[in-house]
Nucleic acid binder design. Sequence first.
DNA 1: TAGGCCATCTGGTCCT
DNA 2: AGGACCAGATGGCCTA
Length: 216
Amino acid sequence: MCTSVENLYSDLDSSSCDLSYVHTDDEDSRSSSHGASPSSSLDQPSSPAICQDSATPEQKKKRRGRGKSEVAVHVVKKNRRMKANDRERNRMHNLNDALDKLRNVLPAFPDDTKLTKIETLRFAHNYIWALSETIRIADQCQEKSRDPSLMLPGMGRVADAPSPGSDAFSWLSSASTSSSPSYCTSNPSSPAVSEDYGFLQADSLYSYHNFATNIY
DNA sequence: TAGGCCATCTGGTCCT
DNA sequence: AGGACCAGATGGCCTA
């Protein structure tokens, strides 16, 4: 992908463009002064306008007068840039590999559509929260069951508490998401889900399900 | 065709 | 000095 820029390098190598376009002394002074301004890339080699020689006659004269050592410096800079590009590419590939591994441990969606990067991160966030919340509530269940006086009407015993792998957890693996859910930005430590045991009831379980799979 | 997503390049900054 | 990380820019692809 993005072959245009790659072609650009081959263009440079095939000298369809002047080598001095790779990096000029003038660009050095510009880049060091303005930082990463939005328009800075227009001056960069990746700009499609790179091969449109808009240099003034004075600048062209200056280029022609460039000595061998100066050309060598530019070749070194070009090589450094290419190496940096290579590292950056590998870095992003590693990042994508990690995202793929994260996708693989998340419940698969029925339609088997691949989650986008942001969806993956948000879904993972909610998924982790849901799992930790389930553990916390199961622990609470266990504690309260030890003290019968704390039992609420209709509340089950410890054995009734859901455990990972049980049907009560099926919502985690049968997750489906609406097309435009709203992303939960609440802190996992302060969940928006009711803390009583009612969430184990069908209707509450449904909202819990929706929350856990809310990836936006 | 507009908008979303993605890969890539790039220069700046920070760290070792 | 060189590498890692980051954010901005750009262009390609896909879909509604």
